[in-house]
Design a protein around this nucleic acid. Structure first.
Lengths: 336, 336
DNA sequence: CTGAAAGCGCTAACAG
DNA sequence: CTGTTAGCGCTTTCAG
């Protein structure tokens, strides 16, 4: 039982390969119902599976999409992947998922690889803005692409983004509404857009409530749990605050750990707000209050945009709105 | 700047396409260093990227591999993906990651899709044993494949597995060594191999220590946090145990939650052992004692096997040994 | 309504 | 040392 080709089917069904090709592609025109059925039956019997590479070679469409994520290990990204994958499959595309490990070298490499693999488009969730090389690869390679969340500022708004500023604001407002006024904030890496925007939204909220946020209370993290733990431990030893906003949930976990070891009760002595609403967050005790992004939907939408772009429809970028999910890790200051 | 082909390079460099093809494939023989360099330079200048589909069509090698995981949302699987991806890339293969959502329908569909996409091999991490359709697809499609963890019993040992029985034993022994004798166990779905083996290892350990494990203390979960939470809550209301072994870490999280809500202190009143050692487990308070599998390495090894198979070397399946990682969620019974 | 033939971009004999 | 040529499995005019 060697690999079957369209020829074998044609021979077996007593028709030409053109006819076989036609039924393969559901071309309505031409062909008796009978011929079609016969061909279909032969395919069935022989368990024929068309070679998509060969098809791609002539149609210039591989029906494959690339998705590059910075770190599949951060539970945020599997959500994105699932959304992307589901939408891609709905639309008859396959997804190649790649992990850039937060390294722009790897990212560039994957872009090249995906292009060689003739993917029809790329969804890029970059660590931060695109490196110059990446941008070049993408742009003068004329390959359709969509940016996810961490993108360009201004100009090239072809992507799916979150209103990070608003997210930060939501977190800040929640905390000040609860009456807190000694508040700290742990950001992601300083140079990352995302991170800056969340911070600036947060600052806006505190300002509105005339709560001061001294520079010393702005802690710089790296979106990882371990670092957050260390930074928090040091900070909590030397400072008194009643609330902390972590720019992502993973860092919130690190802060939990630090607080626990120092005997600081959450939320009784310390309120914590996270960001992302990754699934594991409900496993924390107490459950984390956080700013939710609908990652799954964002993934779907991003692929939707990408495919539209590939298929020639112009479709604008989208900005998603975050929402605040109040759970158990924040508490009214008065009750402290 | 239209899509460049090997022809363009040949014309530009003033050589034949064969020559270009040769430098592309690093064929050492023939060709002056000079010619090679000239071609290389032209490629560079024009930023040429070879079309892998076309190559695949003639070589019958796509250099793509498929990986099907049951649920990318369980943090266990991203680890596997990373290992698999890294090894694949090392060996110059790309990985298409697919998510079967624990549905064998989706799994079968993906197998078909991957085959049509002409992947060179498939790494299949199935929910449980293969469905008949999957098996057929794989076997009479003559496509190399390797099974991950949840596989066939006996016969076809082409895969990477964990010694689940030993893992269960390790957990049981740890608990009995600590002096516990009122112990419960939460398993995965009853019909799953994995699940059964972990349980039977666990039972073996208790038996050795002459500790009884009544049927009523064997709780059936589904490897998910939510269910575990519900089951545990009910169980803990009606029964007294001083230790629970959860067959995976996600379920351990659910048990934490239940215990917390009922005011049961871990590990003071209840010791818990998990299974997998997924990354988030150190975010739990107290940190979870668990049976670790080296998922990343297992992923690498699996791809290694797969590629060996593809490239014609025979390589046997591998069974990995789990290890016990003692953290903070278990405590000596005497100190209770 | 159906088929013959050209060609997608590349590799691999086989010649020169 | 290099080029010519015949496909890989499929789609797609263009004829019949």
């Amino acid at each position: 039982m060697e690999k079957l080709t369209i020829k074998d089917i044609a021979r077996e069904a007593g028709v030409s390969i053109t006819t076989v090709s036609r039924v393969l592609n559901n071309k309505e025109d031409g062909m008796t119902q009978k011929t079609r059925e016969k061909v279909l039956k032969v395919m069935e019997e022989l368990n024929y599976q068309p070679n998509k590479l060969a098809r791609g070679l002539v149609t210039k469409r591989s029906n494959m999409l690339g998705l590059i994520v910075p770190n599949i290990t951060n539970p945020y990204f599997p959500e994105l992947c699932r959304g992307a994958e589901d939408e891609a499959n709905n639309r008859q595309y396959s997804l190649i998922i790649c992990n850039s490990d937060d390294q722009s070298g790897k990212e560039e490499n994957y872009i090249r690889l995906l292009k060689e693999q003739q993917v029809d488009g790329i969804l890029l969730s970059s660590k931060d803005r695109l490196s110059k090389t990446s941008k070049n690869q993408l742009q003068n390679g004329k390959i359709p692409y969509v940016l996810f969340d961490r993108g360009e500022d201004g100009t090239d708004y072809s992507g799916v983004f979150l209103d990070n500023e608003k997210g930060g604001y939501l977190a800040g407002k929640h905390l000040t509404d609860l009456g807190h006024f000694q508040i700290a904030c742990m950001t992601g890496p300083r140079e990352i857009q995302n991170s800056k925007q969340r911070l600036s939204g947060f600052q806006r909220a505190l300002k509105e409530a005339t709560v001061d946020l001294p520079a010393s209370s702005i802690l710089v993290g790296d979106f990882q749990m371990d670092t957050a733990y260390r930074v928090a431990k040091k900070f909590l030893r030397d400072n008194t605050v009643t609330a902390i906003f972590a720019s992502n949930d993973l860092m919130a976990c690190g802060i939990y750990q630090a607080a626990h070891e120092m005997g600081i009760q959450i939320p009784d002595q310390l309120s914590i707000v996270g960001f992302d609403d990754i699934p594991l967050v409900t496993a924390l005790i107490p459950k984390l209050t956080t700013v939710r992004q609908n990652t799954y939907e964002m993934g779907r939408k991003a692929i939707d945009l990408l495919i539209n772009k590939i298929e020639g429809e112009i479709s604008e970028g989208v900005i998603f709105e975050p929402t605040l999910i109040i759970r158990e890790s924040t508490k009214n200051y008065n009750e402290v």
